[in-house]
Each structure stands twice: as structure tokens, then as C-alpha cells.
Design a protein around this nucleic acid. Structure first.
Lengths: 219, 219, 219, 219
DNA sequence: TATGAATGAGAGTTCATTCAT
DNA sequence: CATGAATGAACTCTCATTCAT
């Protein structure tokens, strides 16, 4: 062929329309494939990290041929993005369920629930942090998707009773998200006792703090 | 990539001595080389991450040939470990300087200082987290070096006045370390205002919490 | 690794400095390698055409490993360009030798010599046309290198005695070059008699024509 | 690429009937399909060249599925051949229309008409040269189809008044065909003025030459 | 027949590591 | 010790072709 990419890179300029989207399957069979490919991707990314995960292994893990994988995800990046997107939607959904109760709760109690939700989510989708932290995404995109998650949490926090001081929900959302990452890290620790203790410590720290913040405004 | 295999010409597993230690230079010239190689490694690891950093680039960045690099660091892993080791020593040194004042301070105030020290250190050595988080180190080693750092901080915390409840210093050390990672992450955010605010928020949260913990035992 | 090209295409944005030049060898050994790689490239490109030629085959033909090939020519395109460049220089050199006699000759006679030179060159470097015609070079470059060759020939034609009419040398240069390509094509015909006859026919046609053009201006 | 291998699932060389002919459609619908597939093929081959053209793109361009394409053209080669065949028939038809006037014309004037006809044809069917020059056709076939075209033109030339010397029509046919290829190449040049000038130059050169040849025999 | 998923050999390319000079 | 060439397994990605529905 006249111009091949890449295997690797080194493409010329021609209008080769390199796809920038995962292909959507038309048939039921295709939908099943996509699902199992995403699942396999999630497993492998979680286990090895983005870089060390190989497309070959992902295909194998999905019981598909490499060609089949590329049929739907024309690029490793695209696969990662599709997976990341899907998981973000899922997490968003779980958080949105908290919306109803938000105004009946104090920030501290809401934080507890958010914590619980996120912990459950991360248990279910251990690839999430790996995907969030990928080094080769352009900062713009990265910022946007971070902002989206932050806003969702900030919105919840803004509704609590008693209310948090102006502007705080946004910052606290950042804090919560970062604490979650810490929890993921800690989850990999091997000493069971310490692991539980440390995770609880983070939870309590946050609660204590939020209570203090609320009290501060009351006076 | 999945930790590239041995490479090179016919290797075989003869008694071929694969060194497991970075070679120590004999001559003065060698010491300078090693220093610039480590510096280059630090720069490249920080910029690209462990996987994407290539030995070739590191050598080039150090103004050395690839052969020269391998003379002193017979393996990418060994280079990373040497670097990591050096940086850990450095951080330990900086923390140890806090030892003298520890017993004159409350846990909250000590935390502030620890924060400051670590922030400075991480500014100087941005490769540190990358090296700490490398996925391909065996958990044993990982746990050990983590423990070492934790103990150092726990020891400091144990000396504060008023004292923290039994057992807490160890857990809180974990918390502090994780918060530092969060700070590193946040440092890469682009919105200046939010970045500063979030970092401060973490600091204040920790202080507030430590104060509460101290008060709790007093009563 | 964080970002891999291609194997294929699909690189991100990072400053991965993908080289755009063939590396120049430093040692004698390297120079020899490069020579044999270029020779192998020439052979394979000539035999199979650019697309069908594989880097693997070229390396094998040169008695080198694939890695060795890529050490000096980081891209198939770069190899082709290096080869093309080298051959253009060679052809230019051969044509320049005609410069001395140009003003002693009529256009028709000069054309004969140019023909002879190019025929010899193309016999020696059968990959030339393949490289010239590569579809994936940007038109800008293509135009430039064509112009260069044209000018060289036009300059020669401009010096003939009697002189050609103004402006004609440039157009005639184009004609000559295209006739050469025709000759290359015809050279692959299998019927010996026809092949020789056709090639001669082209030569005579050109001469006849140039004579007519010269006469036209004389009157 | 080096004419990609068989592909597909376990093939084996059983009595598996690999068709060597494009299937002829039975239904009206089929005929329309075939037409649009051929048209798409022509477009894509012309744009990208044979190697870089993909069956997938051709199918897409025809608004058909890849399966549908293979239904009628079980092989890329077969598609190319079908297309080539069709175009040859078309060109032959256009040339045959000149037959009536051939004996009223001089070779020079006939050449002009042949030129005009071929130029029109190539404008309409830009894939033609690509298909003619395909490197992977066996020389036997190549020679045959070339000969066919040459004969057709030689036959026309043989009828001109005054007649060309014995044997010349055949050689001159070769010359004309090659000149046409040159014109195709030149047509892609970007400098409008030079393009027109060069094309005209070729035309005039041929006429001048043919006139000279005729005169030569007359004497 | 039409559709779209499935297949897998093979291509370009990378990079840790080794070796000759 | 330094240098730079050599090596090759492994990786991402492509595309002709086949097959199930």
C-alpha cells in the first residue's frame, strides 16, 4: 500500500480518513462483541496500566481476534477513550441518584454517601483511575472531563443543609475526588488492618472538616 | 509496553552475570557521569513517565552515549531504582531536619512543616511520584520503601505535644503521604486560582483534623 | 510506552521528536552499512516498486537486521528519499560532465548525448523512476526536484550552437525527461527487436524535431 | 504492500473454488450494482493508485457493503481487471471511429486525431494508466493487452495517405502510446503555462516527425 | 443476494540491551 | 571506560478475504 501508518506512525498527508471514533456496531452480534471487548479492555488496563496493556492481550482476553478488536476500536487510544467515557457515564449516573436526598443532608453526611458511591464504583471499575491519569491525553480534554465530574459533585454539595459557604463546594469537590484516588492507591496495600484504618481515617478526616466548615459559617 | 524483554543478541541463560546493582564509578570522571545521567533520568522520567522515557533519550540528555549509560546502569529498572533511592535519601534528610522541633510543636503545626518540606522536595524532584508509582516493582520492595517513609513521618508525629493517641501517628503518616500525591496531581492543573485554593484546602483540612484528634484525647 | 506510533500511526502530540532525516553514520562500519542498505533498497525498490518493497526484505537483502536498517533510516519514506537524493546527485554529476561540450554541439547532437547519459544512468539505477513517481510525496517537493533536473538540462540546451529559440530549452527539457521515462518503460518489453526499434525511434524523433526547431529560427 | 496473501479463515487448498472471473449479475439490480462498483473502483484507483486503494473504501464509495463488492468481484485483482477490460473496450471503440477517415489523412493529421481521442479518453478515465501499469500482472497478459492496443493504432496508421514506410506503423504506435503516458504525467504538473506548452510540444514533435518520415519515403 | 462482523498474516516501527572497536 | 552500531522480540495497526445471518 502506498501509505501505511503505523504500525506505528509515519503516515503521509493523504485523505486517508483515519477514524477518530469507535465504530458503532450495527448487529446484535457486534454489540455483544463491543461489550466483551470493553470488558476485556477494562480488565487488562486495570491489571497492567495503559502502557503495558497490549491490544493483543485485550483481544485474546475478549476471545476475539485482533482484527475484530480493531474493527470497533481503530486505535488503542480510542478504546481507552470509549472505556473512559462509558465509565464516566456510569459514575455520573450513580452520583445523580444521590441528588434527591442532598438537601436533606449535611455536607458531612453527603460526603459519606459520595464516598460510598465512589468506593463502590471504583471497586467495580478498577481501570478508572488508570484511564483518568493517562499521560497522553491533551490537557484540554483532561481538564474538561475533570471539570465535569467536579461540577457534578459540587452541585450536590451546594444543596446540603446547612449550606456550605459560597465557593467552597467547588474546591471541596476537588478534594473529594483526590481523596478517592488516595483510596484507590491505599486499596492496593497489602496489610489489611492498616488498609481499612487508613481508608477510614480519610473518611473521618473529611467529615470532621466539613462539619467544621459548616459551623464556621453558622456563627 | 509490557516491560520489554531482554533484547540484544543471543542471550541464553548461561552463567552470564546480569548485574543487579548500579555499578559504582571508580574515577572522578565517572562520578560526574553518573551524576549527569541521574539528572537526565530524573528530567526525562518526570517529563514522560517511566514507560515512555527511553534509555536513548536519557543518554542523549546527559550528553553521554548509550553505551556509557549502560556502563553505569545496566538496566532501565536499575537506573530508576538508583534514582528513586537517591531521592528517598534526600527526602529523608529533609524530614530529619524537622526532628529537633517536633516535640515543641502540636501535630497540626508539625503537619504544616512536613507539608512544606515535601512540597519543596517534590518541586525539586518531580520524578519522585513517577518512580514511586512504577507498576513493575515487586510489591515486597514497594511496601518496604513505603513503610520506611511512613515510619519516618510517624516518628515525628509521635513526638508532638500534646501527643496523638496511640497508633494514630502511623495512620496519619499514610494520610499525609497520600495527600502529598494529591497535591502533586493538583499542581498540574492549569487554573491558577483553583490550584492554589485546592492545595490550601487540603492543608487546612489536615490541620483541622489533627487539632480535632488532639482535642479528642485530651478530654 | 506511553505513546507509540505506529507500529502504525496513531501518535499523540508529545515532543517525541520523530526524526525527519536519515542518521549519518559516525564510524567506518556504519558507513559501510549505510552503503549496503542503500544498495539493497535500490534493488528491492526497483524490483517490486515502492509499495510492495518491505523494510524486512531490504534489511535481509543487505545482510542486516531490521533494527540496523531503522538505526540509519528511521522510516521507509526516509530511506526512499535518501536513495532518491543520492541518485539525483549522481545523475546531476553525469549530466554536468556534458557541460563542457555543450556549446560546440547542435541541440540535436546534445540531445543524443543527454539520451546516452540518461540511458546509462537508468540502466545503473533502475529504481530511479520508481522513486520519482512515488505517490505519497507532497507535490511541493515533487515539483522542486523535478524543476531542478529540468533546469540542469535546459541550461545545457541553452548553450548549443546554433541556439534554440528563447524559452524552448525549458520545455524541451520536460520533453526529454518524459521521453526517458518512456524508454524505461519500453526497456521492460520482452520482444527484443521491437524494444530496440522503439527506443531508437524515440531518439530519432527527438533529433529530427530539434533540427527542425533550430532551422525554424535561422531563417 | 506485497500483494497481501489470502487472508480470511482457514482456507486450505481444497477443491475450494476460487473464482477467476468477475461474476456476472443476473438481476437488473445487480447490473446497477456492478456499474456503481466499477465507477467507485475507477475513482479510488485513480485517486490513490492500485496499492493504496482499499476494497473497503471502494465499497463505501459505491454505497455498497464490502460483502456486496466481493459478491461480484471476488478479488481486488479481478476488480482491477474488469475495470481495465471495460476501459480498454471503450478506448478501442473511440479509436475505431477514426477508422473511416484514416485513409483520407496524412499520418501527421491522423496522429493529431489519435492524440485528441486518447486525451479525451484519459480525461474521462484517469484510472487507466494506473491499471495499465499495475506491477503484479503477469508479463504475458501485459504484453498481450499492450499489443492489442498497439495493433489497433498501427492499423490506423497503415491506412494513411501517403503511406508510412513498411514496418513503421507498428513502432510509431508504440511511440504514440508512450507519448500519451507522458501527457498524463505532465497533466498533473501544477504550473499551468508550462503544462500546456509541454503537452503541445509533444504533439508538434510527433507531427513534425511523422511528416519527415513520410517525406523520406516519397523521394 | 445483501450486510456487516470475523479473521490473521504481515507491514512498519520501537527500544532495551549487547558487542566490537 | 567511551562510543556507536547491531540485534530482534514485541507492538500497533491494516486490509484482503471469508462467513454467519
Amino acid at each position: 500500500m502506498a501509505s501505511r501508518a503505523t504500525g506505528g506512525t509515519a503516515d503521509a498527508q493523504q485523505g486517508a480518513k483515519r477514524p477518530s471514533q469507535a465504530r458503532t456496531p450495527q448487529l446484535e452480534r457486534g454489540r455483544a462483541r463491543v461489550a466483551s471487548l470493553l470488558a476485556a479492555g477494562a480488565r487488562v488496563f486495570a491489571e497492567k496500566g495503559y502502557d503495558a496493556a497490549t491490544m493483543t492481550q485485550i483481544a485474546a482476553e475478549a476471545g476475539a481476534s485482533i482484527g475484530s478488536l480493531y474493527q470497533f476500536f481503530p486505535t488503542k487510544v480510542l478504546l481507552a477513550e470509549a472505556l473512559h467515557g462509558e465509565q464516566r457515564v456510569r459514575l455520573a449516573g450513580m452520583l445523580d441518584k444521590l441528588g434527591g436526598d442532598a438537601r436533606k443532608l449535611s455536607a458531612a453526611d453527603l460526603a459519606d454517601r459520595v464516598f460510598a458511591v465512589m468506593a463502590e464504583f471504583l471497586m467495580l471499575h478498577p481501570a478508572y483511575t488508570t484511564l483518568v491519569e493517562r499521560r497522553d491525553v491533551d490537557p484540554q480534554r483532561k481538564r474538561e472531563s475533570r471539570a465535569q465530574m467536579e461540577n457534578r459533585i459540587a452541585d450536590l454539595l451546594a444543596q446540603t443543609t446547612p449550606p456550605l459557604p459560597r465557593g467552597r463546594p467547588q474546591v471541596i469537590a476537588v478534594v473529594i475526588i483526590e481523596l478517592m484516588k488516595a483510596i484507590v492507591t491505599i486499596s492496593t496495600y497489602e496489610e489489611d488492618a492498616m488498609r481499612a484504618a487508613a481508608i477510614n481515617e480519610l473518611r473521618v478526616m473529611l467529615k470532621t472538616y466539613l462539619r467544621a466548615v459548616c459551623n464556621a459559617i453558622r456563627v
